[in-house]
Structure formats: C-alpha cells, structure tokens
Computed example of a mutant assay.
Amino acid sequence: MKYYGKITYEIDENHPDVNYVAGGWHQGKVFEYEDTYGFDERLYSPEDYDMIINYIKKDLKLVAGGGHNTDHIHNVKFEIRRMA
C-alpha cells in the first residue's frame, strides 16, 4: 500500500530552522512538504487505516517542526490519500 502525504503549515519565530528559510521568514509565510509512504500489505489491513493516517500525520508534523518537535508549527493542514 502506498500513500501520498502533504502538510501545509506556518512557522513562528522560534522554529529551529527560521534562519534557514529560502527567501527569508515572515509571519504568515506558508510552507509545504510532501512525501510518499509505503506499508507492506502482508502486515497491514484495511482495519489499520486510522493508524496509518495518524502515523503519516505525526511524521509530516515532525518534519515540519525541523525534526525536533511540533511546538513551532501552526495552521496545519493535511492532504493524505492512498495511491493506486
């Protein structure tokens, strides 16, 4: 099973990567990150759907947080879908 995940978010001035933002940071600047995720169909079933979605959300939020935590990301939105 493959899933596509995308996070859209804003960061605040205390984000660990605020000084490394291409084009500079300003309040209200919107960022996005996307990735694909693979889950072995021999290990996961349709009943595991909620767990898979929660895992993807947690992973995307951690990446958006600079790999440290999610304290400095705001206005978070997700797009997650199973790929054919």
Score class of each variant (00 low, 15 high):
residue 26 H to W: 12
residue 58 K to D: 10
residue 39 F to L: 13
residue 71 D to W: 08
residue 31 F to R: 11
residue 40 D to W: 09
residue 10 E to D: 11
residue 17 D to L: 10
residue 14 N to G: 03
residue 50 D to Y: 15
residue 13 E to N: 04
residue 67 G to F: 11
residue 80 I to Q: 01
residue 68 H to R: 11
residue 27 Q to N: 14
residue 11 I to N: 06
residue 10 E to L: 03
residue 33 Y to T: 11
residue 5 G to N: 05
residue 58 K to Y: 13
residue 56 I to Y: 00
residue 39 F to Y: 15
residue 10 E to K: 05
residue 35 D to Y: 09
residue 55 Y to M: 06
residue 77 K to C: 11
residue 21 V to Y: 09
residue 44 Y to P: 02
residue 70 T to E: 07
residue 3 Y to C: 01
residue 7 I to L: 02
residue 69 N to T: 14
residue 7 I to N: 00
residue 53 I to L: 15
residue 27 Q to E: 14
residue 60 L to K: 04
residue 66 G to T: 12
residue 47 E to M: 14
residue 22 A to K: 09
residue 6 K to E: 02
residue 31 F to H: 08
residue 24 G to R: 14
residue 40 D to Y: 07
residue 63 V to C: 03
residue 55 Y to W: 14
residue 50 D to F: 13
residue 3 Y to F: 15
residue 20 Y to N: 10
residue 44 Y to V: 13
residue 38 G to P: 04
residue 4 Y to Q: 07
residue 42 R to W: 07
residue 48 D to W: 06
residue 59 D to I: 08
residue 3 Y to T: 01
residue 27 Q to K: 13
residue 66 G to W: 04
residue 68 H to V: 15
residue 39 F to S: 09
residue 54 N to C: 05
residue 39 F to G: 06
residue 7 I to K: 00
residue 71 D to Q: 06
residue 48 D to S: 12
residue 25 W to P: 04
residue 65 G to K: 01
residue 78 F to C: 00
residue 78 F to M: 01
residue 73 I to F: 05
residue 57 K to M: 05
residue 65 G to F: 09
residue 67 G to H: 07
residue 3 Y to V: 02
residue 12 D to R: 00
residue 34 E to G: 05
residue 13 E to H: 09
residue 48 D to A: 10
residue 41 E to P: 01
residue 49 Y to W: 10
residue 46 P to G: 12
residue 68 H to P: 02
residue 73 I to C: 00
residue 64 A to F: 09
residue 54 N to W: 08
residue 75 N to I: 08
residue 25 W to D: 00
residue 78 F to P: 03
residue 56 I to F: 02
residue 31 F to C: 06
residue 30 V to Q: 10
residue 42 R to I: 13
residue 3 Y to S: 01
residue 73 I to P: 00
residue 15 H to C: 06
residue 61 K to M: 15
residue 82 R to W: 08
residue 41 E to T: 09
residue 59 D to A: 14
residue 50 D to K: 15
residue 7 I to C: 03
residue 8 T to V: 13
residue 22 A to T: 11
residue 3 Y to A: 01
residue 44 Y to E: 03
residue 77 K to V: 05
residue 56 I to T: 08
residue 16 P to M: 02
residue 55 Y to C: 08
residue 84 A to R: 10
residue 6 K to V: 00
residue 70 T to C: 01
residue 10 E to C: 04
residue 49 Y to S: 06
residue 35 D to R: 06
residue 47 E to H: 14
residue 4 Y to S: 01
residue 81 R to T: 06
residue 7 I to F: 03
residue 58 K to A: 13
residue 31 F to E: 12
residue 13 E to R: 12
residue 18 V to P: 00
residue 48 D to E: 12
residue 20 Y to I: 07
residue 52 I to E: 05
residue 25 W to T: 08
residue 28 G to L: 05
residue 4 Y to H: 05
residue 50 D to Q: 15
residue 15 H to L: 02
residue 16 P to G: 03
residue 46 P to F: 14
residue 69 N to S: 14
residue 4 Y to D: 00
residue 37 Y to R: 11
residue 6 K to L: 10
residue 20 Y to W: 13
